[in-house]
Design a protein around this nucleic acid. Structure first.
Lengths: 251, 251
DNA sequence: TTTATTATTTGGTAGTACCATTCACCTGCT
DNA sequence: AGCAGGTGAATGGTACTACCAAATAATAAA
C-alpha cells in the first residue's frame, strides 16, 4: 500500500527518464523492498498520468540495470531483486571490449589486487577456509590429470579459486572486483589455457600458493603470486606476438 | 548502406531482447562505428517486422548500457558512442549502494588500490603530468583557504585528484575502479569533509603526496598514502560511533 | 478431494495518431 | 550575391487502443 501515492505525475520533456529515476529512487530508498513488486504497468500508467509505453521503457531501463525482473501472467509484474555481480561484470566486459583494454593491463591489475588479497586472506581467513582453498587447488590438479585436460573445467575451477581467495580477504569489494574482471576477461582466460605448458605451471603454482597461504607465510605466498602472473604475462605476450604474425581471419 | 540487411526479423517470444542483442552485436562487431547512426526507429520497425514500441525498448536498453545516445529532430536518431567510464561506474555504484558496504571496507580497498597506483604513476607518468598533479593539489590548498572552505569544491577537487592520479598509472582499469568507487561513495566522502580537522590534514597530505610523486620517491609517497588513509579510517570510525550514539532521524 | 475448465490479471506486441524538435531547403528582401 | 525568415520533412517522444500469450486464481465437474 505504500507505493500508491509516492510517485508524482512529472510530465516534462523526457518523461520516461523521469519515471525511471523515480522508480529507481523508490527502490534504492527501500520504498519497495527486494522480492516485492512494482505496481502493474497499467496502474503506473494512471499514477504517472502517461502512456503505457513510457512506463514500459522506464521498466526496461530498470531491468537493464538489474534492479528488477519481470514476469508475465497474474501476479506477474516487475519484481525488485538484489543486484547481482553479473550485471556489473557484464557492464565492465562491454567497456573492456569496446575500449580494447590490453590484456597486459588486466593481468597487471589482477596481480596487484591478488597481492593484497593474499595478505588479507592470510591475516583474516580461518584455518578451515585455508584448508578448503588447498582442497580446491587439489581439484584443479585432478582436472589436469585428464587426457587431455578439460579446458572448460580448468578455466571454471580457476575462476572459483580466484573468487574463493577474494572472499577470504574478508572485504567484499575485492570479491566483486575480481568477479567483474573475470567476467570481462573470460575470453582471454580461456585462450591462455590452450597453452599446455602454461596450463601445467599455473595449476602447480596455484597449489603452491594455497599451501603457502595455509602455512601463513605471506612473503612466500606473494612470491607464488608473482610467479603466477609472470607466467600469465609471458603467455599474453606470446599470444599477442602470434596474433600479430597471423593477421588473417579478421573482419 | 551496410545496415540494411544485417538484421533478421526474429520474432520469438521476447522480441525486444532479441532485437537489442542484434543491435548490440552490430555495434560491438563494428558494423556500425562510433559516431554513426542506427537506422531510424521507423526503418528498424520495417526491417525487424515489428512494432515501434519494441524498437524503442531495445534502443532504450542500449542507451542504458551507454552504447548509444539519442537525438531528436531531423538527422536525429540513435548515435553509437564510446562507452564512458561513468556508465560502467554507475553499474558498480548501484551494486555497492544496494549491498550496504561498510565504509571501512571501502577505505581499505581504496588504500590498497592507491598504493599500487602511486607506484605505477611514479614509474610511468611524465614529469609534466606529475607537475600537473602538484598544481591540482595547490588548487585544493586554495579552496581550503576560503572561510569557510567550500565543502562541495573540496570534495570535487579531491575526486579530480584521485582520478588524475589513477590516470597516471597508465592502466585504464585503475581509473575505472577509482571512478566507480567514487561514484558509489560520494556521499561518504562529502560527510568526511564536514570535519574541519580531517579536512585540513587531508589537504595537506595530498600536497605532500603529490610532491613525493613529483620527486619520484615511491617509499615516501606510500607513507603519505598510508597517512591519508589512516586519517580517513579514524574519521570513519569516529563518524560511525557518532551515528550509533544518535540513532535518530532514521526511516 | 482431485481434476478440468474458465476467468482474470499482467506483461508483450502491433499499429495509429499526434506533438516537439531539429535540420535542410526555399523564398523573398536587401 | 547574400542574408533573414519561413516552410516542410525527418525523427524521437508520447498517448491510446486493441489484441495476444502466459500465469495464476476461481469455479465447475468428476
Amino acid at each position: 500500500m505504500s507505493a500508491q501515492s509516492i510517485f508524482a505525475p512529472a510530465q516534462i520533456g523526457r518523461a520516461g527518464e523521469d519515471i525511471a529515476m523515480q522508480l529507481e529512487a523508490a527502490i534504492l530508498g527501500e520504498k519497495i523492498l527486494p522480492g516485492e513488486r512494482l505496481p502493474s504497468e497499467r496502474e503506473l500508467q494512471t499514477q504517472f498520468q502517461c502512456g503505457r509505453g513510457v512506463i514500459r521503457e522506464a521498466i526496461r531501463a530498470l531491468k537493464q540495470k538489474g534492479l528488477v525482473e519481470t514476469r508475465k501472467g497474474a501476479k506477474g509484474g516487475a519484481y525488485v531483486k538484489n543486484i547481482e555481480m553479473t550485471n556489473v561484470g557484464e557492464s565492465l566486459a562491454l567497456f573492456l571490449k569496446q575500449q580494447r583494454v590490453a590484456p597486459g593491463h588486466i593481468v597487471e591489475f589482477r596481480e596487484s589486487i591478488d597481492r593484497v588479497i593474499v595478505v588479507l586472506a592470510i591475516a583474516r581467513a580461518s584455518a578451515a577456509e585455508k584448508q578448503a582453498l588447498v582442497a580446491e587447488t587439489e581439484k584443479l590438479l585432478e582436472i589436469l590429470k585428464g587426457e587431455p585436460p578439460d579446458r572448460d573445467s580448468l578455466a571454471r575451477q580457476d575462476q572459483i579459486l580466484n573468487i574463493s581467495l577474494a572472499k577470504m580477504s574478508g572485504n567484499p569489494i575485492f570479491e566483486w572486483v575480481m568477479t567483474a574482471i573475470q567476467q570481462g576477461f573470460s575470453s582471454h582466460d580461456y585462450a591462455l589455457y590452450d597453452d599446455p605448458e602454461y596450463c601445467r605451471k599455473t595449476v602447480e603454482n596455484w597449489y603452491v600458493t594455497a599451501l603457502r597461504i595455509a602455512e601463513n607465510d605471506p612473503m612466500k605466498a606473494l612470491n607464488s603470486i608473482s610467479a603466477h602472473y609472470g607466467l600469465l604475462h609471458r603467455c599474453v605476450e606470446k599470444q599477442k606476438a602470434e596474433a600479430e604474425s597471423i593477421p588473417s581471419d579478421g573482419g
